[in-house]
Design a protein around this nucleic acid. Structure first.
Length: 452
DNA sequence: TCGTTCACGC
DNA sequence: GACGTACGTGAACGAA
């Protein structure tokens, strides 16, 4: 789908966005080349060790006897055959073409020293061969210049490549740490800074469906949807919802439902998650799974039936206007063959129901970030600031702050991102908010701390 | 060269 | 009542 702006304003967003991103790409991002080279060596040692661990297991010897000289511990085809044909494990995932899946979830479920070692090796390989190698390949005089594309993505989001700056590990601190330590400011006096829109997609979705209950959740800081749904999903009181439990329900229920998943998928994954989540009950601690069993939800099936009921209440009782919007929006698309986004772009061509509902939200949320990026970039340039925007990740800006400019830049960024944008786009009917993180002078992307 | 599988991000 | 998680980039394997 090529960008199809419907009005001058929408065209101008792409035009100005392209110019701003071109400046950002040209300036680039500094990486610590010496650190990268050292880390490559260290990773290679760790990989050799991981390989040795694999070869200590009986499964590996079985593998060797099956494939002889062709044995390759990176081959998923071979691994699948060894586990499911030779060793008699039963696949836990529906087989697509050819071989049964041997991905992270499957191998973790098997949980032997052998599969654990394979997973450890995969993680290390990913860090070395995708990220560190990519940074070293793309750097010129210690600076990388990732592309930020506006012309490739179906939803009118951006993408990034050469290297991709939008998928650097962050959730796994082991992986993220190794790579993010390589990303540093342009001078030892400068500071890296990241400014995120909070809940960008949820807020933009509310601008489409206008569900009053959702708007209340957004406007009232004492309300917390993820916490409330954790209470319902896991039969808890508010005080029992810990951070990890809230996080699991946020991804496993709330966002899954927003993206169009349903109880048959959501139930089993929340049931599995309950196995690993501890429930702090004042003096005694038990796994959340045991709590559910004690409350009468004894099996995955019983739990999934319960989630089916939670889901019905979620859409029919809690957010009926949102539910109605989804139905209407899809119906209108089926009748016309296209739909238009709030930012003035037309999406047409064959789309499934979930795509049709998710594209406009995803695209418009990114356009909020892009509009803000353009304004901030112009302001920094016009005022001859030494601070620059160096990247963008869908709903966040990454900056290289020059000494003495942090406060002025952050103040201006907040004004643009939360206030000016609402004058430019009156369709934004909910408040927007940001969160910022900053690293000490000269420190890396791994050293960011929240501010304010 | 290309489709598949896997894994990282939002 | 049935249906069904969105969007990317990139590495490696393995068949063509």
């Amino acid at each position: 789908m090529k960008p199809l702006p419907l009005n001058l304003d929408a065209y101008q967003l792409m035009h100005d966005g392209t110019l701003a991103l071109a400046d950002i790409e040209a300036a680039g991002i500094r990486v610590d080349v010496e650190y990268l080279k050292r880390s490559m060596g260290k990773l290679t040692e760790q990989l050799d060790e991981a390989e040795r661990v694999i070869w200590k297991t009986g499964e590996a010897r079985e593998w060797k006897s099956l494939y002889k000289k062709k044995t390759n511990t990176d081959s998923t085809t071979q691994l699948s055959a060894v586990l499911f044909k030779r060793l008699g494990y039963k696949p836990t995932k529906a087989t697509r073409k050819g071989n049964a899946a041997v991905d992270d979830e499957v191998l973790r479920k098997i949980g032997t020293p052998f599969t654990t070692a394979i997973l450890a090796k995969r993680k290390l390989t990913k860090v070395r061969d995708t990220y560190l190698t990519g940074l070293l390949r793309e750097q010129v005089d210690g600076v990388i210049h990732p592309s930020f594309n506006l012309h490739l993505v179906q939803t009118y989001r951006s993408s990034s490549d050469g290297p991709n700056f939008q998928n650097v590990p962050v959730r796994d601190p082991e992986q993220g740490g190794v790579i993010r330590q390589a990303i540093i400011p342009h001078t030892p006096q400068d500071q890296l800074c990241e400014i995120d829109y909070s809940g960008a997609e949820v807020r933009v979705a509310a601008c489409y469906h206008k569900d009053p209950a959702m708007i209340t959740y957004i406007e009232d800081p004492t309300k917390d949807l993820h916490r409330d749904m954790a209470c319902e999903c896991y039969l808890l009181k508010q005080e029992q919802v810990t951070k990890p439990i809230r996080h699991a329900v946020k991804g496993g229920f709330v966002f899954a439902e927003f993206y169009g998943s349903y109880y048959e998928n959501v139930g089993p994954s929340l049931w599995a998650a309950a196995n690993d989540l501890p429930l702090g009950l004042n003096d005694n601690l038990m796994p959340l799974r045991d709590w559910l069993i004690r409350r009468g939800l004894r099996t995955e099936n019983q739990f999934t039936d319960h989630i089916a009921a939670v889901e019905t209440r979620f859409w029919d009782d809690r957010f009926p206007i949102y539910a109605k919007w989804k139905k209407q929006w899809h119906k209108a698309y089926l009748a016309r063959g296209y739909f238009d986004t709030l930012t003035g772009f037309r999406c047409q061509g064959p789309m499934r129901r979930n795509e049709c509902i998710n594209y406009p939200v995803q695209g418009s949320a990114f356009h909020c970030l892009l509009w803000s990026l353009i304004q901030l970039h112009r302001w920094l340039t016009a005022n001859e600031m030494n601070s620059t925007i160096i990247g963008q990740i869908h709903d966040s800006l990454i900056l290289n702050l020059a000494p003495g400019e942090a406060t002025a830049v952050l103040t201006k960024a907040r004004k643009i991102m939360c206030h000016d944008i609402r004058r430019h786009w009156p369709w934004i009917i909910v408040p927007l908010d940001i969160e910022a993180e900053i690293a000490p002078p000269g420190k890396s992307w791994n050293d960011m701390e929240s501010i304010k």
